[in-house]
């Protein structure tokens, strides 16, 4: 006891060394405090592996499970392009279910399915263009809320300028999200959108369908 106490006391008066230890222990305390408090949220999440898109295969996007079926050109869709010669509509038919136990709103669904840049499809910037809207196939009305436990057959739609060519195929990007605590208000939210699945889908033109 006496021996160890003496060693510590001898260290005491060496001022520079002491300051160094003090700074070290303070830095250690801060680092430990940050760790204890849960650490920093990483600014950039690592790029997830983007799997290839397969029609008919269910994709887990976090808040939703989406099964992409087919993509087609539609001349008229109630409410968005009726009797409009300037635009045509590209519609992706898909099956959607909500994975959680509460209502998910439609805006997140349309943001989760994006089309790689196509001539005549307006988007912000260079990235993939999220769907303009989501419609329920059964009645043609807008799907603004996805209720848990129900399966919806929907049309996700993009408006395309009619002067641009009808594409023969289009590249789709499905964006997934993670349920985590928001660092702003600590509520659980679906955050961190990241591409999960991407791939090219054939686009069926209306004329081809008629023949």
């Amino acid at each position: 006891m006496a021996e160890s106490g003496g060693r510590l006391r001898r260290l005491g008066p060496r001022a520079p060394r002491q300051h160094l230890t003090l700074a070290g222990s303070a830095a250690g305390a801060v680092a430990l405090a940050v760790l204890v408090a849960g650490g920093f949220d990483p600014l950039e999440k690592p790029e997830a592996d983007v799997a290839p898109l397969a029609a008919g295969e269910a994709v887990d996007l976090g808040p939703f499970t989406v099964t992409v079926d087919r993509m087609r050109v539609v001349d008229e869709l109630p409410g968005i392009s009726e009797g409009d010669d300037d635009t045509r509509v590209l519609a992706l038919v898909a099956t959607v279910t909500a994975t959680g136990t509460t209502t998910q709103y439609g805006a997140m669904l349309s943001e989760s399915v994006a089309l790689e840049q196509l001539p005549g499809v307006a988007g912000d910037g260079d990235g993939p263009v999220p769907a303009d809207d989501v419609y329920v196939m059964a009645d043609g009305t807008r799907l603004d809320a996805v209720q848990p436990g129900l399966e919806y057959e929907v049309a996700l739609v993009w408006e395309q300028d009619a002067r641009a060519d009808v594409p023969s195929d289009a590249r789709l990007v499905l964006v997934g999200r993670t349920l985590r605590e928001s660092s702003i208000d600590r509520s659980m939210e679906w955050l961190d959108p990241l591409p999960v699945v991407a791939g090219v889908l054939e686009v069926t033109a209306p004329a081809e369908e008629e023949s």
């Binding site: 106490g5 510590l8 230890t21 222990s25 250690g28 305390a29």
Partner: peptide
């Protein structure tokens, strides 16, 4: 003078972290 020695600083750091950990 023992109170101003190294164990004091270390003890402070440990106590601070312990207090935060307890709160958490």
């Amino acid at each position: 003078s023992r109170l101003t020695g190294l164990p004091r600083q270390a003890a402070f750091a440990v106590l601070l972290v312990a207090a935060l950990a307890t709160g958490r």
